[in-house]
């Protein structure tokens, strides 16, 4: 049952809800978007612009107010059922009573009928460099180590679509810069049953992070969130920290920053 079609296809997807004063509030403006299989997309925008909401809609965790979503041709809930989604949140959200190994295994244990054999758990632990910490529980790990476990937990599902919501936002600057390249290693090394490779949506508010990891950067405007720019990233893969000094990288980053500025000022009330 190899997934077919585009990884993500959104048709006029929007989200609004009633604010405390009873007024309808538009969080995500009608959005139409196609992400081909195998593409790594960053979604950047100011805080509170609806990036996270859009990601949660794609993940099937929140229904949209209007519009249609398809993940490899299926509805998000069907994509959940087929275990096609690998989620990474801003917080690691690991089970505190499970050690590193058992946390990485969690997603394979759940809905086990749909579990695919991807990379082995041992290999993932090795890839994230936590062999010595295999039997440590999350509260004994640093924030960066916890987030590595969370990424490994998502990749253990061998998901054709990886959805990441500001996964490095809670980490210190040095760890952040290192983690983006570790993520790219993991993303490319871990096999996937999707023939055209793994797709990813990476939500961030860091321009350099967005450009460093992605094939394509989508820029969202302040609320109501709307994709106002769709920029290709020209740097070749595999990428290294050094490429952040290259003219190509700097040009792409400048284009993203210009698009963010053009998107309008950040509203005083988020």
């Amino acid at each position: 049952m190899a997934p077919s079609g585009d990884a993500v296809d959104l048709r006029n997807v929007s989200l609004s809800y009633l604010a405390a004063d009873g007024q309808p509030l538009e969080a995500v403006a009608p959005t139409t978007l196609t992400i081909p299989a195998g593409q790594f997309v960053s979604l950047v925008g100011p805080s509170g612009c609806g990036k996270t909401s859009l990601l949660r809609i794609i993940a099937g965790l929140h229904p949209p107010t209007s519009g249609e979503i398809s993940i490899f041709g299926d509805e998000p809930l069907e994509a959940q059922r087929l275990k096609e989604l690998g989620l990474v949140f801003q917080e690691p959200a690991l089970l505190p009573w499970r050690d590193v190994e058992a946390n990485i295994r969690l997603g394979r244990e759940l809905n086990a009928a749909r579990t695919r054999d991807g990379v082995s758990i041992d290999q993932l632990i090795e890839l994230i460099g936590l062999e010595e910490f295999r039997h440590f529980r999350p509260d004994a790990l640093s924030g960066g180590m916890q987030q590595r476990v969370a990424i490994a937990r998502a990749l253990a599902l061998d998901p054709p679509l990886l959805l990441m919501d500001e996964p490095f936002a809670a980490l210190d600057e040095m760890t952040r810069e290192q983690m983006r390249y570790e993520l790219l290693d993991l993303w490319s090394v871990a096999p996937t049953q999707a023939e055209r490779g793994r797709s990813a949506i990476f939500v961030t508010h860091s321009v350099s992070e967005a450009v460093a990891v992605a094939d394509r950067v989508l820029v969202m405007s302040p609320r109501p969130g709307e994709i106002v720019a769709d920029l290709p990233i020209h740097s070749p893969r595999p990428r290294t920290p050094e490429h952040e000094q290259s003219p190509r990288f700097l040009e792409d980053a400048a284009a993203v920053r210009a698009a963010l500025r053009a998107a309008g000022p950040i509203p005083a009330t988020a």
Binding site: Q80, A93, L95, L110, R114
Partner: peptide, 11 residues
């Protein structure tokens, strides 16, 4: 978020 992860794999 943990609950979200469980939902995301159709637990």
């Amino acid at each position: 978020r943990m609950h979200d992860f469980f939902r995301s794999v159709h637990a």
